[in-house]
Design a protein around this nucleic acid. Structure first.
Length: 415
RNA sequence: GUGGCUGUAGCUCAAUUGGUUAGAGCGCCGGACUGUGGCUCCGGAGGUUGCGGGUUCAAUCCCCGUCAGCCACCCCA
């Protein structure tokens, strides 16, 4: 063993890169049909940018160093600060709402586990300058449509939606104070994973009394439209967004679930996560509204390549081959080589993917290579047919053969 | 950062209570096979048993350390 990539970093062998390219292509395609434009920024930023805008935890997990110009720099752990800077610089000139997407490679120094590495690629889609819940619905619809474009249905993935304003209203109407909200959010976020007595202890430490603690668990248990009804006016934006998704025909994917809180402190409104419906993997995507970060209403989501790639492999919808050959050419004898090379080049000029054996071997060997390479057909050039201006086109899947004029093949036709 | 489990060929796994030259299947390379692939048969390459140390006549096996992976916690791009 010559060593391997650093822990948490990946080598992309052809089959791995095939999958990654498939994800990127799907991301670009769906983002494009939603009218989003692609942007990018530098992978290295000033450390200060993250110490100011992100929480302490994120900073501890940063890849940082001092560059030769004595600047404190960091590999980007998230795209939002970069986006915020780019938008702020041209905010006067940009027509609102801004719909942008990006596929940055992000870095974070943390202990790796399945689905969590130290580096990943993440689709970011953001809408800036629009407060309407229709914008939230738009973003969630795009996330769902990416799943559909990848071959996943409502039985595979579910979009769980919540709204911090709804949570806040429900909690405060039950006696929880504004200062206690942060703890309540943390408890609700963990309510499905952490034992109840541990959560109760968390609440007690923050000065919760019995009735307020009960209210927190009560709220955490609310699901579906009941949650909306209970929250009254505060639930209107979430209700409107969910209705929009239903009108688009995506209702089957959507579940209102108040236990979705999201870790980042800057979310202010609707938040959502896309989950593997069997819940064996981590969240596939997550996002929400962060109106306070810029001077404009804003919302966005991120979707990483790691968990999504694992899910596609698990569900058998990952692509296999990266190249799709049109034909594999076979020269029977050495004297057939010039014809084969001429034909190969002519077909490539026509845009057909063509391969042939790079050293002369028996027909058997060449055909073996042809099927190993996944070619749908072989074009066999031998002295007999060549005298008549013909070649044998063999269908490698069906095992059938036909003689075709070489002139036709030169023009890119197999029959 | 904390705790637990696991490291044998490219992959999946064997190897008697610690025992002599660490095996098999798949994959890879070559041959049977000089104008027809997938099948079959034969042969070959490929290992510092993650790494380092210790115990022992003898370690893949037991002990310690370390690195890596997995799982949980923390956290959640």
């Amino acid at each position: 063993m010559q060593g391997k990539a650093l822990p948490g970093f990946r080598d992309f062998y052809p089959e791995d890169l095939t999958l990654r390219n498939h994800l990127f292509a799907t991301w670009r395609s769906v983002a494009g049909r939603y009218g989003f434009e692609e942007y990018d920024g530098p992978p290295l930023e000033s450390l200060e940018m993250y110490t100011k805008k992100s929480g302490e935890e994120i900073v501890q997990q940063l890849y940082t160093f001092r560059d030769k110009g004595d600047r404190e720099v960091a590999l980007r752990p998230e795209m939002t600060p970069t986006l915020a800077r780019m938008v702020a610089a041209r905010v006067q000139a940009l027509k609102k709402p801004i719909r942008w997407f990006s596929i940055p490679q992000l870095f974070r120094y943390e202990r790796q586990q399945r689905g969590r590495l130290r580096e990943h690629f993440q689709l970011n889609m953001d809408i800036i300058g629009e407060a309407s819940p229709l914008a939230d619905a738009e973003l969630m619809a795009a996330a769902v449509d990416i799943m559909r474009a990848l071959g996943l249905g409502p039985k595979d993935v579910q979009l769980r939606v919540s709204d911090r304003r709804v949570l806040k209203s429900l909690l405060m109407s039950r006696g929880v104070t504004e200062a206690q909200l942060a703890t309540a959010f943390a408890v609700i976020d963990r309510s499905e994973r952490v034992p109840k007595n541990v959560l109760e202890e968390m609440l007690r430490e923050t000065g919760y009394g019995k009735p307020e603690a009960a209210a927190v668990f009560d709220v955490a248990g609310l699901r579906g439209k009941d949650a909306l009804t209970a929250a009254g006016a505060a639930a209107e934006p979430l209700g409107e967004a969910v209705q929009a998704l239903e009108a688009m025909g995506l209702g089957e994917f959507v579940a209102i679930d108040l236990t979705i809180v999201r870790g980042l402190a800057y979310y202010t409104g609707i938040v959502f996560e896309l989950f593997d419906a069997q819940k064996t993997l981590r969240a596939i995507a997550g996002g929400g509204r962060y109106d306070g970060l810029l001077d404009l209403p804003a919302l966005g989501f991120g979707m990483g390549d790691v968990v999504l790639g694992e899910l596609l492999k698990e569900r058998g919808v990952a692509p296999k081959a990266s190249i799709e050959l049109g034909a594999f050419l076979v020269a029977v004898g050495g004297e057939d080589m010039p014809t084969m090379l001429r034909l190969a080049h002519a077909m490539r000029e026509k845009g057909i993917a063509v391969e042939y054996g790079l050293r002369h071997a028996g027909v058997r060997k060449q055909l073996e290579l042809a099927s190993a390479r996944g070619a749908p057909r072989a074009v066999i050039i031998g002295p007999e047919e060549r005298k008549a201006g013909l070649a044998v086109v063999r269908d490698l899947r069906a095992g059938t053969e036909a003689k075709v004029p070489i002139d036709k093949l030169l023009n890119g036709y197999f029959d």
